[in-house]
Amino acid sequence: MSSKVEIRITGFGGQGVVLAGHIIGCACAIHAGRHATMIQSFGPEARGSACSATLVISESEVLYPYLRRPDIFVVMSGEGYEKYGQELKKDGTLVFEQDLVHPTTVEGQRAFGVPSTRLAESLGKTIVQNIVMVGFFTGVTQLVPDEAMRAAVRGSVPAGTEDLNLEAFDKGLEYARKSVSQPAVGVARPILEEVSP
C-alpha cells in the first residue's frame, strides 16, 4: 500500500455527499498536514440519484487528481452502490449506510455498516446523516486524527449548527468504536503514522 489513499463517497442528492467529502479533505489538507484533492461530480450526474465526490489523499503533492480504483468506498445509497461498487480495490474498504445498502463483499475487502440515518434521527435531524457517516468513517478507517476531523466539521458546516454536527460526528465515531473491534488498518497505516496538530 502506497502513501496514497483514494476515496469515493456516494449517495443520493440531498444527503450531503459533497460536504462529507469536503470535511474529510479539509481535515487532511488543513488540519493533518496531508495533500488532499477533492473532485465532485457535476452535471446531470450531480443532480440525479447517485451523486459522488472523490478524494485523493497523499503524503506528497497529488499530481493525478482523479481516482483509478478507490481504496475506500463510502456509500449512502443503494443506487450509488450499484453504480460504483465494482470499482473498489480487491483489498479495499467499504463503509456503508446499512439500512440502505446491502453489499456483497468480495473476499479480501472489508465492509463496515452503520445505521447512520437512524442515528441521525435519534438526534432529531436526519439532515446530519452525512456527518454521522463521517464520524463512523473516522472511527473505522482511522485515516485522520479525530481532532483534525472535528476541526474540519466545525469549519465546514453552517454557522450556528456546529454543536449539532459535532454531536452527529461523535455518534458515528462512537458507533464505530463499539461495533468495530479493529480498524481497517490496511488502508489506515501509512497515513496514521504522522499526526500534525
Binding site: A29, A36, T37, V62, P65
Partner: peptide
C-alpha cells in the same frame, strides 16, 4: 474545468 472544480488547500 478540472482545476476549477478541484478542491485543495
Amino acid at each position: 474545468e478540472c482545476v476549477g472544480h478541484m478542491t485543495e488547500k
